[in-house]
Amino acid sequence: MPLTFVLEDLSAFTARNVGGYAFLVVFGGAFAAVVGWAAVGQKLTVLQLAGAAVVLAAMVVAQTRTQTDVREIRT
């Protein structure tokens, strides 16, 4: 993304473009792990799987929090 700031003008940053970038950032690693497993038989360790589970759980918690929950945490 920082290189994009240098090479593109600000009109390139539409909501759709930023959303697409966010999608790739979030799911890129998972996609690479699945392709690595399917294409060449790579395996993840227990620690890597645990880390992936923690990241997914954090994403679920972050998405299900309401604005009221966030205000309660800050006060």
Rank of each mutant, 00 (worst) to 15 (best):
M1C: 07
M1S: 07
M1L: 00
M1D: 00
M1I: 07
P2S: 15
P2K: 15
T4C: 12
T4L: 15
F5T: 09
F5E: 15
F5L: 14
F5P: 14
F5S: 12
F5D: 14
V6M: 10
L7S: 11
L7F: 12
L7Y: 11
E8P: 06
E8Q: 11
E8W: 08
D9G: 08
D9R: 01
D9N: 07
S11C: 01
S11E: 03
A12P: 06
A12T: 09
A12F: 11
F13P: 00
A15Q: 09
A15N: 07
R16Q: 15
R16Y: 14
R16E: 15
R16W: 12
N17I: 04
N17E: 08
N17W: 08
V18F: 08
G19Q: 14
G19D: 13
G19K: 10
G20R: 02
G20C: 00
Y21A: 15
Y21H: 14
F23I: 14
F23S: 14
V25L: 14
V26S: 12
V26Q: 13
V26K: 06
V26F: 10
V26E: 15
F27D: 13
F27R: 10
G28P: 02
G28I: 03
G29F: 08
G29D: 06
A30P: 09
A30C: 11
A30L: 15
A30S: 15
F31I: 15
F31P: 03
F31K: 10
F31E: 13
A32Y: 05
A32Q: 09
A33K: 05
A33P: 03
A33H: 01
V34A: 10
V35Y: 04
V35P: 01
V35Q: 03
G36W: 03
G36H: 02
W37D: 12
W37Q: 10
W37G: 07
W37P: 06
W37M: 12
W37Y: 13
A38N: 07
A38I: 11
A39Y: 04
A39N: 03
V40I: 08
V40E: 09
V40F: 07
V40K: 02
G41A: 01
Q42K: 09
Q42V: 05
K43P: 05
K43G: 06
L44N: 07
T45G: 00
V46W: 09
V46M: 11
V46P: 12
V46A: 14
L47P: 09
L47F: 13
Q48L: 04
L49P: 02
A50F: 04
A50G: 06
G51W: 00
A52F: 10
A53L: 03
A53W: 01
V54Q: 01
V54L: 02
V55P: 05
L56H: 02
L56V: 01
L56K: 05
A57E: 01
A58V: 03
A58E: 00
A58P: 01
A58T: 04
A58L: 06
M59A: 10
V60E: 00
V60S: 02
V61R: 01
V61P: 00
A62E: 04
Q63P: 08
Q63Y: 09
T64K: 00
R65E: 07
R65Q: 05
T66Y: 00
T66N: 04
Q67A: 12
Q67L: 11
T68F: 12
D69P: 04
V70D: 13
V70C: 02
R71Q: 08
R71C: 09
R71F: 10
R71A: 11
E72I: 13
I73E: 08
I73K: 06
R74A: 13
R74L: 12
T75A: 13
T75G: 11
T75V: 13
T75C: 10
